[in-house]
Write a protein that binds this DNA or RNA. Structure first.
Lengths: 336, 336
DNA sequence: TTGAAAGCGCTAACAT
DNA sequence: ATGTTAGCGCTTTCAA
């Protein structure tokens, strides 16, 4: 039995009104007689009428669909931010279509092409580094575009996020305040992630010419963190603090240190980046940087919608992040 | 400057062919002369032509869009499975639209309504327990539907997942093999999650009438795990093993035990469920149950597409999960 | 305030 | 193998 889905004409016939009026009602046009409106709504209910989105999109040339491309979903930071994007969009009748690029520029570009072909009206990309081909494509198609997870005044494309360089500096400063001079910095693949590059730059600036800093580039995973920590323990001059550019890495570092009986922060301090759900509950609780993921997602969605609806220009936004001072960073202990 | 996006007619005019032929080429219809095909493709490239998805959807009455509703994305299990769904769908030209229900039946139903209005052709829902209104709605609209994360022979709706009850039994059996008789079971909200209910039932069956089992219902979070572990430590007769129905909970349990100087598995064994990325790397490495999340997502997507395209009937699928024997479960230690 | 009617861009008979 | 053409369901001038 076909579910008998009503069309606009059925509603028009049922109410004795024209399809134009029905359309007006369905679109909340203020200049329809309230009585007619009620009649139409009743008939719509009765006939199980829901406007066909394809027909509407074809007619208006608007799909109310926005695309977001993220490197991976396997990462609570992205998950949080995407959740916020979805919530904000759907509250206003928009749909989010998601693509996952695996941090690969080519895949990202292919995904964008598909998303355009699927009718996406605007794009939210993660980070500020993308293939010229992609930017060019979006530009030629006149698709509004925002970058998230970064804030960059200079960027021609609006950036909604945080200042990764400043945050990394602040993180180093936080460790230095605790007396740490021998610091190891652990991060995921630089090639895949421009935020990491920017953070590294910030850390280098804050460290000045101190060449007793160790840098470890590993897989962005708990396993990567473990590996880095293993290497760190094998160096001659063991650092007194480890700064990780992701809580995920910090978790791996902590696991390994614990497995070796090394006390945190007594023997080594550990600091993360992201403030994932569990980082407050870890043992010891992880000192980290809280990123405004939800706010970022909501803002990006909001700006895109305003851009789409009122042609409101988008603008970069520097959202506040802050150091969560917790138990994994302590004063340096002077060894005899 | 408007980016001058070509229509099918422009391509037809440019090539001197009809729109029908252009359409055929764009849809890979085999019966077009290869030369014509090449000509059309070239013109399409030149004129920047991409078929308008709304027009196509209107014409074919197919949106090539499938909807998935998940409780939350903040959880690697769902993330993994959704990633697989997205990958599988997009490989065949389908789009995934995602909604997040926060494990709330009402929100889930509202989301589904919106997704229908947006043109979703089929639905993937998590778990087997959903509001009658939702099932009814999807039924009336004749939207193909699959449940994932569960396998249930008896279900009228196809289920693609694993046998939660059997897995929980296996988990208890695994602990019993190590001599554990006093076991605590920790899980998230029963009201929000039917998989948890099923697992609990399995555990109860495996435990038989042993009434020395402790049950703890907490928030499904690391913090929840911590809380449960705190309570467990405060009971008179401390269990020798803790089974958590999620690795997330197990992580919280481990954090708390460690903070109290309790050795795992020497003093207490801990077992999880899910096999998240980090659980192998934890200290000690977490014994858990590996769920076939990716395979599940891919299968669900595949079945839906076959159903949509060839009207192939969908069928339930019991995917293999297995116990990952690692370091957090050890033999019971007999106390004097 | 309401109605009539012309498309929006594409697909799919049907005809050739 | 290719062309003609009638819609798909809705929005939106333009008239009334």
């Amino acid at each position: 039995m076909p579910p008998k889905i009503g069309k606009i004409r059925d509603v028009a016939r049922e109410t004795g009104l024209s399809t134009a009026t029905v359309s007006r009602v369905m679109n909340g046009n203020p200049k329809v007689n309230p009585e007619m409106r009620a009649t139409v709504l009743a008939a719509a209910k009765k006939l199980n009428y829901v406007p066909n989105p394809a027909a509407r999109a074809l007619s208006t040339n608007r799909s109310k669909t926005v695309a977001a491309i993220i490197p991976t979903i396997d990462h609570s930071v992205y998950a949080k931010y995407i959740t916020a994007v979805e919530k904000t969009l759907s509250a206003r009748g928009y749909t989010l279509v998601l693509a996952i690029s695996n941090a690969d520029a080519q895949m990202e570009c292919d995904a964008a092409e598909k998303l355009i072909a699927m009718g996406a009206e605007a794009f939210i990309l993660t980070g500020a580094k993308h293939s010229a081909a992609l930017i060019d494509l979006l530009d030629r198609c006149a698709k509004p575009l925002v970058f998230t997870s970064v804030f960059d005044d200079q960027s021609a494309i609006p950036t909604i996020g945080y200042d990764n360089q400043a945050l990394a500096k602040a993180a180093i400063a936080h460790l230095q305040e605790h007396g740490h001079r021998d610091i190891a910095v652990v991060y995921g693949s630089l090639a895949e992630n421009d935020r990491t590059v920017t953070r590294l730059k910030g850390a280098r600036m804050a460290l000045g010419s101190a060449d007793n800093t160790l840098f470890f580039e590993v897989d962005l995973s708990v396993e990567g963190g473990r590996r880095a920590a293993m290497e760190i323990l094998n160096t001659d001059k063991r650092p007194s603090a480890i700064l990780c550019f992701s809580d995920v890495l910090a978790l791996g570092v902590m696991f390994l240190l614990q497995s070796q009986g090394i006390r945190i922060p007594l023997d080594i301090s550990v600091m993360g980046f992201d403030n994932l759900d569990w980082s407050r509950q870890s043992y010891p609780s992880l000192t980290t940087i809280d990123l405004p993921a939800s706010q970022m997602g909501a803002e990006a969605a909001l700006q895109i919608m305003r851009r789409l609806e009122e042609d409101h220009p988008m603008s970069s936004l520097d959202l506040p992040a802050k150091i969560m001072r917790r138990g994994s960073v302590g004063p340096v202990r002077h060894r005899p």
